[in-house]
Amino acid sequence: MDFLIKTLGAIATIIVAFIVGMLYMGINRKITARVQNRVGPPVWQNYIDALKLVSKKTSVHHGVMQHLAPAFLMISSMGTLLFIPILRGQSWFPNLSYHGDLIFILYFMVLGSLGMALGAGQTGNPNAAIGITRGLSQMVGFEIPWVMALVAMMIQYHTTSISDLMAIQQQHGWLMFQNPLAFLAAILAMLGMFRYSPFDIVGAPAELASGPISEFGGKYLGLMMSSGSIFAFTKLTLYVDLFMGGASNIVVLLIETFTLYLIPMLYGLVSPRYRTEQAIRYFWGWPTVLGLAALVYSVVI
């Protein structure tokens, strides 16, 4: 009985993440359109796109890894979601959050990208190969400030468990005020994690013919879109858990995640596209300096 409830809870979590993530992306498209003085698509446009992509026929075969790549993405985003506590202090949606910690999540988050790299590599499309090189180099860029920010918090509170960090924030206040340098470094790393402009060279349609996904169409593209929206919600929830003390109910969670989502979205709207080496120089500049300062701060305090 307990197992059944847990399974249903996990499925419900994934469905909620899918719906919320798609909605955020729809709002993103709408706001982008309004900034560009357009009417823009309706906010539910992404659901229609996903439905259409799933109902498309798919008859492309390049090899086994090509078929597995969308599954890798999906596993990575769903798995990360299940190991993150969604709501604080309640028995709802606990999923697997007591079994994983920050270090595990750090590794699990990149699984999707690596699986995608293998799959896109097998398609043999030169654009995909270029896109992968750029994507992985950019990942090396933003992973460094991101890991530094996490390690700073682990050192500061001597724990790697997200639930423990959330409990500590109940006593001491939000971590984003306890260690603001780490928060800033993590936020700057988040800009790269979302791959919105200016860090969207990976899938630039005009330059790379949409990069790694250029050989994936139909159902696979639908799967990638869904996993992207779930992953977006996952990352936002992780940030809320780590820096804003977690949310006590779903409304607060939505408000906090959307506020965080506005940062990469609005920053992207006003920025042109960086080349790969510019992006890496960006991440290894001030974000890394902030991350180092956060480390020093956490050791000293």
């Binding site: 823009g40 698509p41 250029s214 050989e215 994936f216 139909g218």
Partner: peptide, 18 residues
């Protein structure tokens, strides 16, 4: 922005597969 076909759900695709 002038004619904005995206409001009908029309958007560009970069490759024939999509």
């Amino acid at each position: 922005s002038r004619y904005d076909a995206e409001r009908f759900g029309i958007r560009g695709a970069a490759t024939p597969r999509q």
